[in-house]
């Protein structure tokens, strides 16, 4: 092999190595995102949160609460899918909109698994000093619960999965369901892809 041939082959190899896609920032959940057929992606969570919020805001359920903004307690939202993700990715997106727009306030110092036990303890001490047995500001108007499930099917090498996000608001005064919403996200394909 001549020196020029070796040089040409080396140049070609180097050029090929440089062809890989370099790291870059993309819009979170945007159309350049990766679409995974068998996993819940960030855009799926964004779609679910958006669908839930649109329904909740359109129905105006929160404005029926005795307290304004409505006091909301986020209870268990179960991830019953094979995809590992934190359900907080869904609920925090909803909280952001509801709390920041003044439609609801989330009670973070309520219950046995309070997000802020310090605040809960301080409120309890204050109530005790005032001779009260309960802390009125910690009484929720609504409880938010939910479940995320999946339905997987395949035909040949084509896989299809439907992720069903369901949330329910229960009125604490009546114990009855005040609002419920189901958002389905269905994906189909033989392999994961970049962009949609």
């Amino acid at each position: 092999m001549t020196a020029s041939r070796v040089l040409a082959t080396s140049s070609l190899l180097l050029a090929l190595a440089a062809c890989g896609s370099p790291g870059k920032y993309i819009e979170t959940g945007g159309t350049d995102s990766i679409v995974s057929v068998g996993e819940v992606d960030i855009q799926d969570l964004q779609t679910a949160a958006s669908g839930m919020l649109e329904s909740l805001v359109a129905q105006g359920v929160l404005s029926t609460a005795p307290h304004q903004p409505a006091r909301l307690r986020i209870e268990r939202v179960v991830n019953d899918t094979s995809s590992a993700f934190d359900v907080g990715e869904l609920t925090y997106r909803m909280r952001e909109q509801l709390v920041n727009s003044g439609q609801a306030t989330v009670l973070t110092a309520y219950g046995a698994d309070a997000e802020s036990p310090e605040a809960q303890e301080r409120l309890k001490q204050e109530a005790f000093r005032q001779g009260q047995t309960t802390v009125d500001s910690l009484q929720p108007d609504f409880f938010l619960t939910g479940k995320i499930t999946q339905l997987k099917r395949s035909a040949g090498s084509t896989k299809q999965v439907t992720y069903t996000f369901r949330l329910t608001l229960t009125d604490s005064r009546t114990g009855q369901e005040a609002w419920t919403k189901v958002v389905d996200v269905t994906k189909q394909g033989t392999k994961n892809a970049v962009g949609y």
């Binding site: 958006s50 919020l53 997106r93 909109q97």
Partner: peptide, 9 residues
Amino acid sequence: ESPMSTWKT
């Protein structure tokens, strides 16, 4: 700006 504004298909 809102989390309700997302790309949908």
